[in-house]
């Protein structure tokens, strides 16, 4: 066997180069091909598919989140509007009922005043009437007393 390093033509030794070298190289190349087919390609495909899946799901989720946020903002806006409208409505109704109350109160007060006024006037008339009657009666009686007294003298 030709061993062509340093150590002379001998069998054995640490630096004994022979057909092991090319055969080992062929073996390693074959191993590379086999591992490529059995390991690197399928595992790489799996890992990259998963990476793709994660990326798309992330993008999807992000999009959905953005949509949700938009909807939320929308709803918030709507809620605010509704609240404002309700507030305005309540205010209006309050004002309206207030107005109605005032009106009713005014009407009632007026009618009460009128009734009072009328009854007072009637009272005055009756009182005046009665006073006049009493005076007339008193005069008549006075005259009568005077007549009687004078007649008896």
């Amino acid at each position: 066997m030709t061993s062509w390093l340093l150590l002379g033509a001998t069998e054995g030794g640490l630096f004994d180069l022979d057909a092991t070298l090319p055969l080992m190289a062929v073996q390693v190349v074959l191993l590379t091909l086999i591992l490529n087919a059995l390991f690197f390609r399928p595992v790489g495909r799996t890992v990259e598919e998963r990476e793709g899946y994660i990326t798309t799901s992330r993008a999807d989720a992000k999009q959905k989140l953005a949509q949700v946020q938009r909807l939320q903002a929308d709803l918030k806006e709507q809620l605010k509007d509704a609240r404002k409208a309700a507030q305005a409505l309540i205010l209006e109704a309050e004002q309206e009922s207030d107005e109605l109350y005032r009106e009713a109160l005014a009407v009632a007060t007026a009618s009460a005043n009128a009734a009072r006024e009328a009854s007072r006037r009637e009272l005055d008339i009756q009182r005046d009437g009665a006073l006049g009657q009493i005076q007339a009666d008193a005069k008549t009686l006075g005259d009568l007393i005077v007549d009687r007294l004078l007649a008896a003298q």
């Binding site: 066997m1 004994d16 022979d18 057909a19 092991t20 055969l23 080992m24 073996q27 191993l31 086999i34 591992l35 059995l38 390991f39 399928p42 595992v43």
Partner: peptide
């Protein structure tokens, strides 16, 4: 001439690798 012991142990190594890879994939 080839070194038999190198090939024997390299076949064990390659066998272990292939077994692992096949089991895992």
């Amino acid at each position: 001439k080839i070194h038999g012991q190198v090939f024997l142990s390299s076949w064990v190594v390659i066998g272990a690798l292939l077994a692992l890879v096949i089991a895992g994939t």
